[in-house]
Design a protein around this nucleic acid. Sequence first.
DNA 1: GACGTATATTTCACTTATTGAAACTCCATT
DNA 2: AATGGAGTTTCAATAAGTGAAATATACGTC
Lengths: 229, 229
Amino acid sequence: MAESSTRTVERALVLLGAVCGAGSLTLADAAREADLSASTALRLLRTLEGTGFVRRDALGAYRPGLRVVQLGAQALGHESLVSLAEPALDRLVERTGESAYLSVPSHDGEGVYLAMREGTHSVRHASWVGRSIPLAQTAVGAVLTGGPPDGGFVVVRDGVEKDVTAIAAPLSPGGRTVAALSVVVPSYRITEAEAHRIGSLVAQEAAALLTEPGAGAVPVPEDLTGEPA
Amino acid sequence: MAESSTRTVERALVLLGAVCGAGSLTLADAAREADLSASTALRLLRTLEGTGFVRRDALGAYRPGLRVVQLGAQALGHESLVSLAEPALDRLVERTGESAYLSVPSHDGEGVYLAMREGTHSVRHASWVGRSIPLAQTAVGAVLTGGPPDGGFVVVRDGVEKDVTAIAAPLSPGGRTVAALSVVVPSYRITEAEAHRIGSLVAQEAAALLTEPGAGAVPVPEDLTGEPA
DNA sequence: GACGTATATTTCACTTATTGAAACTCCATT
DNA sequence: AATGGAGTTTCAATAAGTGAAATATACGTC
């Protein structure tokens, strides 16, 4: 059996994902979402609880635990995508004055903002790292789920959020889209032409991200040491 | 069985923690750190890999996967941030007697109180969850918008509100400041030395929030009030 | 280039540890 | 009282995980 199954672990991870995705789940809901019997879900959730990956609030519902935040933060520190994208985000803000985002697909037709830079206009789009966004009918969703867009970018006016226009381009190393770079603008101040100008910038940054020195085809170990201790 | 061990899952989570902590681990190193046989570690890591919790780089080493980043980011969503911070707020109030706040940046140079605990002194600072506060010339603003402060905290005397002194420290998982922890004190009863003492406490709680596995440094009556709001 | 050592991976017999139906207890509703 | 749903515990069946050993490969050294 060369297949790598560890059903127990897989199930536990599904539960963990469900809890984190929902923010708060009762045992019964978690069991339903993971398609497990209540007793099994309880046992696995308790294991997750014992290791700090989930915690129970006063009402007994399960919530993401400190450990998840901690590991996520650590992983973000090591995650090359984010550090690679940050200069691009900075440049986008600098050249457009608008808020810029890096997002990746998450689950159930949603994506997550992995990094962001706020624009400099006093009226600007604001969000936060970790925020979930729908992929349906959004510019980010279009580039994450669809093929390479014409011109390298997608403009969606008044998608999920009214009054804002989003302009996104895919990050597709090796042809596989793994993330999206986007700029979000209050619709009232953007013209068709301006949207195109920004779109070109975004597409250009997205393309440059994957070809520039240091980026490489594969994450460059910034931290080769492993564990010295 | 009172305790719920699920050895397999626990082991997998230990491996996950090891990989995230180190940033990059070879199979052998991971197995050693988790005190597992190579074959078991391999099997579990493959499960983690299959679910996106870890990935392998070109050299075959294991690294934190996107899924970890996603879940961590989701867990940092505002509502969970609140429940994560509440024990810290409780401890700050307990050890200082002063009101303590959790705030995040919102729009247009303002921040918002996401959670608070009132102090126990009869004369104390009072505010409310949801209140907007300026970021300019406030301790919270300084830590939210500026870089990591010297000593880990910022003291602002008589900032926006006359007669009060605010002491704030940033919450910066992975180097990105996402929120601030602060204690607000009537200026008349605080000395320079006391401000420093409180500052250390705030900075310490802010740091511990993101790195410490279980509860805080000091045993606190484990009576979590739920999330009413 | 041969040797020694380390890692990565597969196999397999052993049996341990996981499983889920069922039973039971608490609540809430009706 | 009766009903139903959630959370929890028990327990026998067995599915599932375990690790030593074998193999292949890679790397550094002499």
